[in-house]
Design a protein around this nucleic acid. Sequence first.
DNA 1: GTATGCAATATTGTGGTCAATAAAACGAGA
DNA 2: TCTCGTTTTATTGACCACAATATTGCATAC
Lengths: 239, 239
Amino acid sequence: MAPKAKAERPQRKGRKPLSTVERIYGAIREMTINYELKPNASLNESELAARLDVSRTPLREALSRLVTEGMLEFYPNRGFFPRTLDDREVLDLYEVRAVLEGLAFELACVRADNAAIGGLRRYWESCRTNYDSLSAQKLALRDEEFHVRLAKLSENTQLLKMLESINARIRFIRVINLESLGKRDPLYDEHLDIVAALEKRDRKGGRRTLEQHMRLSVADAIAATKEGLARIHLRRRTG
Amino acid sequence: MAPKAKAERPQRKGRKPLSTVERIYGAIREMTINYELKPNASLNESELAARLDVSRTPLREALSRLVTEGMLEFYPNRGFFPRTLDDREVLDLYEVRAVLEGLAFELACVRADNAAIGGLRRYWESCRTNYDSLSAQKLALRDEEFHVRLAKLSENTQLLKMLESINARIRFIRVINLESLGKRDPLYDEHLDIVAALEKRDRKGGRRTLEQHMRLSVADAIAATKEGLARIHLRRRTG
DNA sequence: GTATGCAATATTGTGGTCAATAAAACGAGA
DNA sequence: TCTCGTTTTATTGACCACAATATTGCATAC
């Protein structure tokens, strides 16, 4: 008999069944993003497995995924190491992020229709409510959401994925940065400026505004990582 | 006694011990890059494990790594699926790649010293030998090497990693593209132009040249993926 | 001939076990 | 008290077995 066809790919994500591995992958990802796992020290697989109530096999699969994502490092026979926080890496990521956002903006100028742009504007204007009393944490999430929505307008899936990955890795720093921000209005207005440029399809101008907006000074990066490390250390003491 | 310190991170990669997982990870990565695994069909873990002479446990860890890298897709209870080849994704990756290369170039203009730039020039000039008789495969590798070296001059590790990842994913397409190239001199000369711009620290001009150089037309992308799919299909019959 | 439900088969998911390796603790000698 | 080498302990590496799930094959009904 002729060889029978193998199983073809299932229909793309109707609804997610969410396996064990994917569940704990998300959980561990959140932990590393928030530096709840000691950076720079090997993490104990058995301990973590027990905490998550799974065995080491699926745990290691989840950890493996995080390796290529840059969340963890892996040393043979030594184990998985949560990433450390250093200003070189932060600066590097900021540089890449700025240029990717710039690309997203330019593509959005070309590809997004007015309705979609209107949606972005409405989203950000709706964030005006209680804006000044928001915690830095919440503000960071809304800011991130704004940028994600902008990126979606580019209609470039790969670009979106990379930006989301970078955003996750620098979220901790972003929060610290926003906390130290005295006045928040500039940030709010800059987003509106970006939307305005988008509406005018002003690729060059908008991109300039955006990349300006996303820049992180070396001094700020160093200060933020210093503060971040201190906070991680403190958290450890207090429990 | 005070709580003792946990194991700190080992000295950064003196030489790599290369564990089993990392070994097969690289092997499978190559296979997917070259589409030696049926795209769009679930791959059989037991079979592949036997072929690589390992058990399923380390195999699945390696496969998991490739998921976040975009090389494989994972569907719970269905298994791992080698990625398919579609022109939307190819175009997306090309767009991102162009802008990242542009960034690398600009950073290199600022950060690379003359000696390093000289090294890049010498590397590419050394590629002149037998240039026209090189296989598309070999040419693609040298081209990729050139771009990697350029990216290294940016001194941005994250950027370098992302570019390497993207390059791997589009290598197959690159080769097809290079094959259909009638005359190769333009490509060779463009690289020299880029080096020249770098030597002159001409950020804007060089970036323009570079992004021009890296562009892929929609038509070419469609043609290349079509050809690619045909080739994969053909290989299956004959091989 | 097509469809539907059930049985048989194949494949993935996960826990357990033990070997290999690294880290820690210990002890002898200087 | 420090250093070096040895023993002990802890942790990771990987195979296997079986459970959970999906896929295929088959038979019966319409």
